[in-house]
Amino acid sequence: MLRNPHHVDDDPEMVRELIREFPWAIIVSSHDGAMVASHYPVLLDEETASEGGDLAVVTHVGRPDDKNHVFDGSEVLLIIQGRHGYISPSWYEPGTTPAPTWNFSVVHAYGVPEIVDPDENFRVLTRLVAHFEQHVDDPMYLDPEVGRPLSRGTVGLRIPITRFQTQIKMSLDKDPQSRQNVIDHLRQPGHYQDPALADDMERARARRGE
């Protein structure tokens, strides 16, 4: 991934925030020259997620994805994608270099998956269901009689993140007025309206103390 110093954030807490807000990942591995990519929900391993603790996620893959990935002690790439949207150069201040672009947040995290035992896999699945059902009016919880047979069709994983790269590309390489213009355009009604992305830009600006 291209590393632009304007967009790099090496704070592990930023990684945690992105995973908490967007708990959907692409798991990428390579075996015998073949690339494999799968899409699964992930959660932070909250037991180690306190500030300064180990950075790790828990997830699962459905069988036979475990055979496709061949979790044999090799490193995998975990991609977490946050909000993103098109940015028109027409929004910049006059005199700036006009180049169409895209604002986005992403983390590329790397680690060696640990296959968990069946009991832990069931606990992870229970956590996942509880997490995503929390805003449902009548939430469903994973009853052991139903959940345990389902869990046998999955392989539970804990992935300690040993290194990561982030790109928080929120127009931080532009002049302050151009950044504000982009925020204002994203908040206006119309095809490019994206107030949540504008909020991300505001937060990125605040993190830089601007």
Results as ranks from 00 to 15, higher is better:
residue 112 V to N: 00
residue 161 I to R: 00
residue 121 N to S: 10
residue 122 F to S: 08
residue 86 Y to H: 11
residue 42 V to R: 03
residue 201 M to L: 10
residue 174 K to H: 11
residue 97 T to I: 12
residue 162 T to Q: 04
residue 30 S to N: 15
residue 8 V to H: 02
residue 128 L to C: 09
residue 19 I to F: 05
residue 174 K to Q: 13
residue 75 E to M: 04
residue 149 P to R: 04
residue 60 H to S: 06
residue 51 E to G: 00
residue 81 Q to L: 11
residue 80 I to G: 02
residue 1 M to Y: 04
residue 16 R to A: 09
residue 66 D to G: 04
residue 67 K to G: 07
residue 135 H to N: 15
residue 132 F to H: 15
residue 127 R to C: 09
residue 180 Q to W: 08
residue 145 E to K: 13
residue 105 S to L: 09
residue 131 H to I: 10
residue 197 L to Q: 07
residue 170 M to Q: 11
residue 109 A to M: 15
residue 97 T to K: 12
residue 104 F to E: 02
residue 206 A to H: 03
residue 191 H to W: 06
residue 27 I to A: 07
residue 127 R to G: 11
residue 76 V to L: 09
residue 116 V to K: 09
residue 165 Q to V: 12
residue 70 V to R: 15
residue 127 R to Q: 15
residue 170 M to C: 06
residue 156 G to F: 07
residue 72 D to T: 09
residue 141 Y to A: 15
residue 1 M to D: 07
residue 133 E to F: 14
residue 111 G to R: 00
residue 184 D to C: 07
residue 113 P to F: 05
residue 45 D to C: 00
residue 41 P to E: 10
residue 199 D to C: 12
residue 105 S to D: 08
residue 133 E to T: 15
residue 180 Q to P: 01
residue 143 D to C: 02
residue 86 Y to V: 06
residue 183 I to R: 12
residue 56 A to M: 02
